[in-house]
Design a protein around this nucleic acid. Structure first.
Lengths: 120, 120
DNA sequence: TTGACATATTCCGATATGGGAATATAATAA
DNA sequence: TTATTATATTCCCATATCGGAATATGTCAA
């Protein structure tokens, strides 16, 4: 077997930087025509259409037709599995911050102690 | 150009389900030998070595040698970029929950109102 | 119908993949 | 040294990729 298809799941779909760019652009919650994405991200139109096709296949975006335009909108909740998975690791860098904070506080207490000692 | 290498960045590296499984296994913070991963995840040893190689290349895991064993440990902070990116979309499902909560609360207030009306 | 515009699709080529099987390498013990 | 155990690497294959270029499709207006 080869590498999983980009349309296999959300994790594969968002591996592409340009697709994340597109998602970011759509994250304002409004509908965007393909040409809009092309203009704003400076990506050739066929590439945009293809990327949107991948995102649509995994449900991250949905389309509605309006005349000759195709309006894409974000279905952000499809990203929740990614969030849920990576959230488990939040503690690793949060705790790191805690440790930094603790060290800073200890230092401050030490400073206070020193100052008090001087007073006497 | 073809699809980006799995070692191109964290997003590509974690697209593989088995690699996420390995990351999950290592998330206890302790060191694990390759054979341990093989036993627990029931993945052939060469596959595990290859996946760990990808994860090492992007910095998600690091190795130390201990006799014939290679002990792998997680560098979870490397997952922060993923967390940071996807966190932006948290509001989409959080707000959804808020709406559900609001509806539930409104319903409860209505119930209370009805009960009061009955009292009189 | 014809033309103009918006978008999708197809074809191409270069590339990397992940799995399996076999094999190589490394460390240690007997 | 040799055997054993742990792990990494190599080779092969089927497959899917993304980008670019060209082209097809669809919608509307004149």
């Amino acid at each position: 077997m080869a590498r999983a298809a980009t349309t296999a799941d959300v994790f594969n779909a968002i591996a592409e930087p340009r697709r994340r760019d597109i998602i970011n652009l759509l994250s304002d919650g409004t509908e965007h025509a393909v040409g809009d994405v092309v203009d704003r991200l400076q990506i050739p139109q066929p590439a945009v259409s293809k990327h949107l096709g991948v995102l649509r296949k995994v449900g991250i975006v949905s389309v509605t037709k309006q005349g000759p335009l195709r309006l894409y909108r974000l279905n952000a909740q499809e990203l929740k599995p990614v969030h849920d998975w990576v959230k488990e690791f939040e503690r690793f860098w949060t705790h790191q911050l805690d440790r930094i904070k603790e060290r800073a506080e200890r230092k401050m207490r030490e400073q206070l102690t020193k100052a008090k000692e001087k007073e006497q």
